[in-house]
């Protein structure tokens, strides 16, 4: 393979990135880096955009690699790691060679790194499955705000789709200014400015919150008080949206 001193650009979407990676691998190009097209290069960097006309879709990709590998790549893509594109590229190269055995090849640096990021994203998603708090709005819709480090909005919403299949819900990623909307059939991801303002809370909402807060206070055993331990499991960064602790100092 020849090393080229270019940064390759993709349009920011997952499928475009996959296709770019596959194209680069086919052409035996080792990119200096891969970035989304919003990237601002410095003076010494040269960026290039390839024409990916021959594209494959997600199903073909899964067939080419495997479901497991697809999941890893997707988790990498939604992570906040600044070099995720390059890590995906290297992970794909190794995947072509080792297939699912790649999961035992943690002695390879890029594989170890990729699996670490995958786990980190999965863990954050799992935390939010527990820590997310819905509020009930006037129109019976459930509404929650989160502020995750990785872009987990969609996979998290998938969890609530099965759990609350018969409810309307909206989850807002405050940092990324995007929302997921579930209408009892599908999940839509929309940006904040395409969205109507949230209505008032339902009349019952304060009452229920109040019940939950008093349950929370009661359930702790004072003889076993252990704030360190609590903080380990429920770090401060989550507190803002966890109603039972958000007003604690």
């Amino acid at each position: 393979m020849n090393r080229e001193e270019f940064i390759y650009l993709y349009d920011g979407s997952f499928t475009n990135l996959l296709n770019l990676c596959i194209l680069l691998i086919k052409k035996r190009i080792i990119p200096l880096n891969i970035k989304s097209e919003e990237y601002q290069p410095n003076l010494l960097e040269e960026v290039i955009k390839l024409d990916c006309t021959e594209t494959i879709n997600v199903e073909e990709f899964v067939r080419l690699f495997s479901k497991r590998i697809f999941k890893t790549i997707y988790y990498l893509f939604i992570s906040n790691d600044i070099n995720k594109e390059l890590i995906i590229y290297y992970f794909l190269i190794h995947s072509l060679k080792y297939k699912d055995k790649i999961y035992y090849m943690r002695n390879l640096k890029s594989v170890a790194k990729a699996l670490k990021i995958e786990k980190y994203v999965g863990r954050e998603n799992h935390k939010f499955k527990g820590f997310l708090r819905f509020k009930e709005l006037e129109n019976n819709v459930l509404y929650a705000e989160i502020n995750p480090e990785n872009n987990i909005l969609f996979i998290l919403s998938k969890h609530f789709e099965t759990r609350l299949a018969n409810e309307y819900f909206i989850i807002k990623d405050v940092g990324r200014k995007i929302l997921s909307v579930y209408d009892k059939k599908n999940i839509y991801i929309v940006s904040e400015d395409e969205f109507l303002p949230i209505t008032n809370l339902s009349t019952n909402e304060k009452f229920i919150q109040d019940l939950w807060k008093s349950f929370y206070k009661t359930i702790g055993i004072k003889e076993r008080k252990n704030n360190r331990c609590r903080m380990n499991f429920m770090p401060k960064k989550y507190w803002k949206y966890i109603i039972e602790v958000s007003d604690e100092k």
């Binding site: 527990g130 609350l164 702790g220 004072k222 076993r224 609590r230 039972e244």
Partner: peptide, 24 residues
């Protein structure tokens, strides 16, 4: 799976009480 709610194979902690125990 029912109209409201499902069970998850991996347990989910929703909060931690002042004594550091998982509230699920």
């Amino acid at each position: 799976q029912n109209k409201i709610g499902n069970t998850n194979v991996a347990g989910i902690c929703h909060s931690f009480s002042s004594d550091g125990r998982c509230i699920s």
